[in-house]
Structures are given as structure tokens and as C-alpha cells.
Computed example of a mutant assay.
Amino acid sequence: MKAYLANGLFSIGDRYVNELLARELRAAIPEIELYVPQENDAINDKNAYADSLAIAAADLASLKESDVLIAVIDGVEIDSGVAAEIGAFSMLNRPIVALFSDVRQQGRTNAKKIDALVADGTENQFIYRNLFVVGLIKQNGVIASTVEEVVEAVLKISK
């Protein structure tokens, strides 16, 4: 099975999440061929140079070869590169497993939070994800809230 891991890769937090996901996926599915863009020094060694066309060509080639896309959709907004990768991959009609771990998903049944939001839209205790991107994920995939759930979902796809 070939898989592509999409996430930001410029902050230490994103790189750690990518390393964690890659390690857990490779441990659970030893036969997985996992493309992690931050591991591709030909385009992501920031001491070197790769232009936009080289980056797009490398990542699109890996997307086209992949059986599944694993996409991290955390952050203030979905990373623009991740959103583009989700859009491109969705055109292949292959499964997408997204990780959305934001803790603001908790307490969705808390009536005080709902009442506060209804009374004053600026009292939003929740988080928004772009619904077009969410819809692309849900067409052929799932949104998980933990690394373990991501690994479990990819395991199911690999069988």
C-alpha cells in the first residue's frame, strides 16, 4: 500500500506530528510505502532550492501513486497546501483519512455553549473547518480525532 501524509511542515509542532504519524503508521503497517513530503530533501531541504514547479511535480506524482491520503486538518485553518492536496487527491476517488485533533470538539452537547453561541455569535466555543474540504474528505473517507484512530482507519483500508 502506498500512502501520502499531508500536513504543514514548517513549524516544529507540524514536523513532530508528521514524525509521530509516520512512525505509528510504519510500525502498524510495515509494508506501507509512506510519502512524507518533509522527508523529501530534493524539494524540502530549505538550505537548498526547489522551485514551485519542482515541488508541485514531486508531490502530485506521489499523490497519483498513493492508495490513501492521510491529511492533518488541525490549526487555525486547514493548511493551504493540505487543502490543495485534499482537493487534488479527491479527484482520484480514493480514500482520505483526516486527523482533526482540536480539543474544541469536546463539549458539543453542553447546552451553555450552544445557548451562548445562539445568543452571541462571537461566543463561539467551537472551531470551524471549511465545509467544502470536509465534504471532499467525507466523500471517500473519514475524519479521526486521534493518531490511534488514524492508524486504525488506514489499517482497515490496507486489508
Rank of each mutant, 00 (worst) to 15 (best):
K159G: 14
A3F: 01
A42H: 06
A3Y: 04
L53H: 12
V142P: 00
A144L: 12
N47I: 01
Q105D: 04
N93K: 07
V72H: 09
Y49W: 09
I114H: 02
I70V: 15
V134E: 15
T122A: 11
F126N: 10
P95N: 00
E19G: 07
V154W: 02
K2A: 06
A57F: 10
L131A: 14
A71D: 09
I70K: 01
A54T: 09
Q139M: 15
A144G: 11
Y35S: 08
D79R: 09
K159S: 12
G75D: 10
V82R: 09
R15I: 01
E77F: 13
E85F: 03
Q38S: 02
V68N: 01
D51H: 13
S52K: 11
R94T: 00
N130D: 15
V154T: 08
K138Y: 14
G75M: 15
A28Y: 02
I137Y: 13
Q125P: 08
Q139E: 12
D67A: 12
N44D: 04
L131D: 10
Q38F: 07
T146C: 08
R94H: 01
R26W: 04
R94E: 06
D14A: 11
V118D: 08
Q139Y: 12
A48E: 07
K64C: 06
R108N: 12
Q139V: 11
I43K: 04
E149G: 12
K46R: 14
F10V: 14
Y128Q: 13
G107R: 00
N18H: 11
D74Y: 05
R104H: 04
A84V: 13
E31I: 03
N110R: 07
L131H: 14
V68H: 05
E85R: 03
A54H: 11
S11N: 02
I43Q: 05
V150I: 02
R129C: 13
K112G: 05
L63H: 00
D115N: 08
G135M: 09
N140E: 08
E77M: 08
N40A: 10
V17K: 01
E85G: 01
L155F: 00
N124P: 02
V76S: 15
F10K: 02
I32A: 06
I157K: 09
M1Y: 07
R15K: 14
N18R: 13
I96T: 09
Q38D: 09
Y4V: 02
K113R: 11
D51Q: 10
L63Y: 06
M1D: 05
V36K: 04
V97G: 04
D67R: 05
L69G: 03
N110C: 07
D41V: 08
E152D: 15
R15W: 02
D45V: 00
L117W: 01
L60G: 06
D67Q: 08
L20T: 13
I78R: 08
V82I: 13
T146L: 07
V82A: 12
K2N: 15
R104G: 06
I86S: 05
K64F: 05
P30A: 02
N130W: 14
L60P: 00
Q106W: 00
G141C: 10
K159M: 08
E152C: 10
Q125H: 11
A111G: 01
S62E: 14
A61N: 10
F100Y: 14
Y16G: 05
G135T: 08
G87P: 01
L63C: 03
G107C: 01
I86M: 06
A119H: 05
N47R: 14
P30T: 06
I32V: 03
A3R: 01
P95I: 01
D59P: 01
E33I: 15
I78N: 12
L92W: 02
A88V: 06
